[in-house]
Amino acid sequence: MTMPFYVAPEQLMKDRADFARKGIARGRALTALSVKDGIVICAENQSNTLRKVSEIYDRIAFAGVGRYNEFDQLRIAGVRHADLKGYTYSREDVDARSLANQYAQVLGQTFTHEMKPMEVEILVAEVGSEPGGDQMFHVLYDGTVNDESGYTVLGGEADSIAERLGQTYDGDWEVGDAVKASSAALSGQERTLEADDLEVAILVRETGRRAFQRIEGDELARLLD
């Protein structure tokens, strides 16, 4: 009987991390910004049917980058978890922190024990009654959770996009300012993104229970202009 090849745990984890990062880098990035009117999420997405940004629960949004079928499975699982928890206990018991922890456990378990890790990064965002109460959790492919403040970037070229966005970011922006800044940061200096190239949504601060709204079509084009 032949003995299996030995691979050091450190090398195995490194190979899985490199594999996941390469898969994520092939996708398009997205930004999330906490501004005066709420949390604006802007993703580069030329598809009109495959959504990167979705509503999870009352004042909570989900966004994903990387392999679509994998982060959409996570989105569906999050919706089911939130609905069950809200029905069993109370709607106020459903929050972004607990959802992010659930996602972190699933991604960490997959990264450690499965042959192929999930090639995804996800964002769980919850809008507060004022900017200081906004919560944004960036969950990586290996289950690492980052508690973000102000703004965050997910996906390929995240560092350079975050640097461009950080040069101009202002928490007192209106929605239009946030959309324009996000579009400029995602596109860089060598190209320009039009309304059809973007998927934009906002968690509106003052709408009460249901805060998630999409910005598309003529409304998005006006904001970019």
Rank of each mutant, 00 (worst) to 15 (best):
T144A: 12
A211G: 04
G38A: 07
Y169W: 15
K52I: 04
S34R: 07
E10F: 02
R205W: 11
R191T: 14
L30N: 00
L203P: 06
D159V: 13
V53E: 00
D197S: 04
R16N: 10
G208Y: 10
A20K: 05
E157Y: 05
Q189T: 12
M136T: 12
M118W: 13
L84C: 03
N48I: 05
Y151S: 15
L165P: 01
R16Q: 14
V200G: 05
L99S: 14
L220C: 08
R205N: 13
F111Y: 11
G64I: 06
V124Y: 11
I76T: 14
T2R: 12
A32M: 05
Y169P: 04
G128F: 03
L154R: 06
D197G: 01
K14I: 00
S160C: 02
G155S: 09
W173K: 09
R191I: 10
R97V: 05
L224T: 05
D18Y: 08
R16C: 10
H81V: 14
P131M: 03
R80I: 00
W173D: 04
D225F: 01
A104L: 04
T49F: 12
D159S: 15
K36P: 03
A77E: 10
M1W: 08
V7P: 00
V175N: 04
R80F: 02
G27C: 09
R21Q: 15
S90W: 10
